[in-house]
């Protein structure tokens, strides 16, 4: 079974490449028992969304 380091490493890679079926199963199995990694996975997406907003600077203080 994966530890949290390896689980988050795969989750992170999932944003750059398509994970294999086996990798996805390992992640799901780990996340089902680990709230920390479940939260991390969700936050990867939120951080990515924030980075896009940061790039666009849409909510700049100059508005």
């Amino acid at each position: 079974m994966l530890n949290c380091h390896d689980a988050t490493f795969l989750m992170s890679q999932g944003r750059e490449r398509k994970l294999t079926f086996s990798e996805r199963m390992k992640i799901r199995f780990h996340a089902s028992m680990c709230s920390g990694c479940t939260n991390f996975e969700r936050q990867l997406e939120q951080i990515s969304g924030a980075a896009k907003a940061f790039g666009a600077q849409q909510s700049s203080s100059d508005e």
Binding site: Q43, Q46, G49, A50, A53, F54, Q58, S59, S61
Partner: peptide, 21 residues
């Protein structure tokens, strides 16, 4: 250990949040 982030998605695009980011 990552805790749940309670803020709605929209809050993560505010000026204040992006300054911290």
């Amino acid at each position: 250990r990552p805790a749940r982030w309670s803020d709605p998605e929209a809050d993560l695009h505010t000026t204040q949040f992006l300054a911290v980011f």
